[in-house]
Nucleic acid binder design. Sequence first.
DNA 1: GAAGTAACCTACTGCTGGTAAGGTGGACTC
DNA 2: GAGTCCACCTTACCAGCAGTAGGTTACTTC
Lengths: 205, 205
Amino acid sequence: MSTPEKAPTRRKRMPRAQRERQMIEVAEAVFAERGYAAASMDEIAERVGVSKPMLYEYFNSKEGLLLACIREARAELRHVTEQAVVGAAGAEDAMRAGLRAFFRFIRDRKQAWSLVRHEITLVGTSAAEEIEATRQQQTDLIATLMSGYFDDSDTVRVQAAAEFVVGGCERLAIWCERYDELTPEAVTEYAMDLLWGGLQRLTSR
Amino acid sequence: MSTPEKAPTRRKRMPRAQRERQMIEVAEAVFAERGYAAASMDEIAERVGVSKPMLYEYFNSKEGLLLACIREARAELRHVTEQAVVGAAGAEDAMRAGLRAFFRFIRDRKQAWSLVRHEITLVGTSAAEEIEATRQQQTDLIATLMSGYFDDSDTVRVQAAAEFVVGGCERLAIWCERYDELTPEAVTEYAMDLLWGGLQRLTSR
DNA sequence: GAAGTAACCTACTGCTGGTAAGGTGGACTC
DNA sequence: GAGTCCACCTTACCAGCAGTAGGTTACTTC
């Protein structure tokens, strides 16, 4: 009636940072599971155990939430690859270590990876440039690794090569999901063969 | 009132096939312009000069419409590359011709290309497998072109190489949109350098 | 324990994908 | 040239989801 009995709304309050992490975690799962379009903010809110306006309080929009998830995933990916590269001796070794870290990430964090693939849905929004910038960092890292093998003056060519490598590896990552007997190490060797040969050809001209 | 004056509903009737083409054409433009999520069926219908239920009559759903657009674009892309490859003499020449056709397509049919990039939004739907199959045809074509350079027994490796090339070129295509002074021919040479070196390394092991 | 604030909720709006049910006009028969 | 058929097309609606207004509750601080 007009006096609804007070349901024991056992609310758990949480510090902001912690809530945010939790929301991103759940959203990542839901987006990966249903796809961006089919995922509903109501469902995400419910799974978090929080009401919808909270999501908007934290992320402003559905796109904002997706962006936060992608940002998180990309940061994680960037961290593991950089970590791997730093410990390596020599350019070839660094390349191999970076690739291995990448393909391991793909295997271990399937959800995060599938999210990154959805970044296309953000083109045309205000988030587009941030996404593009993050992606640029990734190719720049590769370009740095390779730059020793190029004439320094030809920066456009180095960029092109880096883009090619990134695209090739991303596609390879999608492809090898279908073969679970394919270890990250094996795929790394495939990639090394393909791209290292290309680099050597370029340096010998 | 209850007797709405007959607005001169200047309807143009059209044979089914022609309407369908027209719808796909408009939808391609709208999807490319706004992105899939932001595009509205109402707007597409209005631009075609037809009512919304007609779109559903023809394509069943928004996803169906997107699928039809992508199918069309991919068919077009496949046609131009195959055409280019057929006329070539020798494997290297065929590869180069195919790449050139691809990068020209990207330049001339920007809309179609941007649509193909949105195919990720269809994963998890019934259309997913058709998309995957179409894509497979593309890599198979590449794999065939390259197979002369591999030990026949190692088909997995050939597949991996083909995937790598496709991914690399796709990323290169996105990248070179930012540089309008970059001709398709120039980008083709970048790609040839990168992938041909890789192939030669593989054959020399 | 009163005041203040950060976290949270209920209850709504408007838009868009999708549908039901019916109108209309060209083509074909006779 | 009147009747009939059917493909084409429409208006008018529903359900569900992104996004919001405004009030409530628990925790901290003094």
